[in-house]
Amino acid sequence: MNRDQLMLLRRLQELQFTAIELNLYLDTHPDEKEPLMEYNRVSQQFNNLKRTYEDRYGPLMVFGHSPSQYPWQWINGPWPWEIEY
């Protein structure tokens, strides 16, 4: 995995972590506006960056969530447990 791909992946992990943390917080504080706005903002950033990543390096999700270029890119490695950070 090259440096650019790794950096993009790290950034996606950071954004998603923020989304997960806000998600759990909102589950028990659904009426708070500020974390909700932050969740929406981070989700949008995450999805934009994810699209960039997937266009370059293939789908992160399948089952209908992301398209693939030809040939089917999903089977390409490295798989998450094989990546050297």
Binding site: L9, R10, L12, Q13, Q16, F17, M61, F63, I83, Y85
Partner: peptide, 9 residues
Amino acid sequence: IYEKKLEFP
């Protein structure tokens, strides 16, 4: 759904 990445590197 499986996402092909770890939550933490």
